[in-house]
Design a protein around this nucleic acid. Sequence first.
DNA 1: GCGACTATCTATAAGCA
DNA 2: TTGCTTATAGATAGTCG
Lengths: 175, 175
Amino acid sequence: MAKKPSLGRQKIEIKRIEKEDSRQVCFSKRRAGAFKKASELCILCGVEIAIIVFTPAGKPSSIGHPSVDSVVNRYHYCNTPSFNLGSKNNFSNGTLRMNRLCELNQQCSELLNQVEAEKNRRIVINKAVKAGKGDRFFWAQEIGEFALNDLRDLKASMENLRAGVVKRADEILKV
Amino acid sequence: MAKKPSLGRQKIEIKRIEKEDSRQVCFSKRRAGAFKKASELCILCGVEIAIIVFTPAGKPSSIGHPSVDSVVNRYHYCNTPSFNLGSKNNFSNGTLRMNRLCELNQQCSELLNQVEAEKNRRIVINKAVKAGKGDRFFWAQEIGEFALNDLRDLKASMENLRAGVVKRADEILKV
DNA sequence: GCGACTATCTATAAGCA
DNA sequence: TTGCTTATAGATAGTCG
């Protein structure tokens, strides 16, 4: 009779794969997929891109157009205020520090944007909830509470982060 | 008569998209896809990864875990002959600073993940609201508004954080 | 670890809001 | 730019060799 050669692709949860073999296989396949995506993005949109990844075994693996180094250099260059360029040979500490601060700033900007977007979505949902007339939504209630708890944690994390930044900045200034 | 709501996804050739608008849209969507893939690879396989890409407009955009810089540094370290190790002690201050900043970067990454998780939950809630069509949802409404207030606070915190980072960065540059 | 294969799952092109 | 929808193209989990 008919056999089932394969169940086909199964849905998986995005969390660490515990089985080492599976993790390794997944890594190989997805790394290839990621590199391909990068390549396509590069060709389709004519942009520069670089990916650096470390295998589970800790070996570096990378791809870049025109090259990893050129992209990384351009990245550092872009994150370095132009008036620092004259003292390029002074790169040592200040510039590295600056890069990190700039990056942090950039990430925070992105977070801000996301929060803003999320806020707007909340407004929409609120309106929907008001307009709608639901019942038998116990499960939705649970979800709502989870989300709320998460937001509390998130807020706390942000506060810690801010405190850390301020403190660190103070330390730097003392030097 | 029957209309054609959409032809759905069309096959495209992997070559530079000439139409500028389309190229820009494609870039935005695929960059998001690529970043997501990187994030999944990172979580599923527990590896470090960084992507640096420049928008068609030339602006740098990046993602990295634990941070772009830490991955780039590790990459350089791996590609750097050991004779650089001798001057380790020269990094005394810088290294401590770097570690601290890396921690902050990591916190930022985690926050990003949390925001992402929140976004996903929102989608679930949204669908739930759409799917159901009952009434008396006042509790959900409260939750929604509470969350909204939290988001406002969160946004304010982030703005302060960013302002602090920018200010400190400026001060450092003056030195 | 590397391909091959299949059945699914996921990403996304196109068009519009 | 970002979101949403539809319908399809592309990626990949599970399995075998």
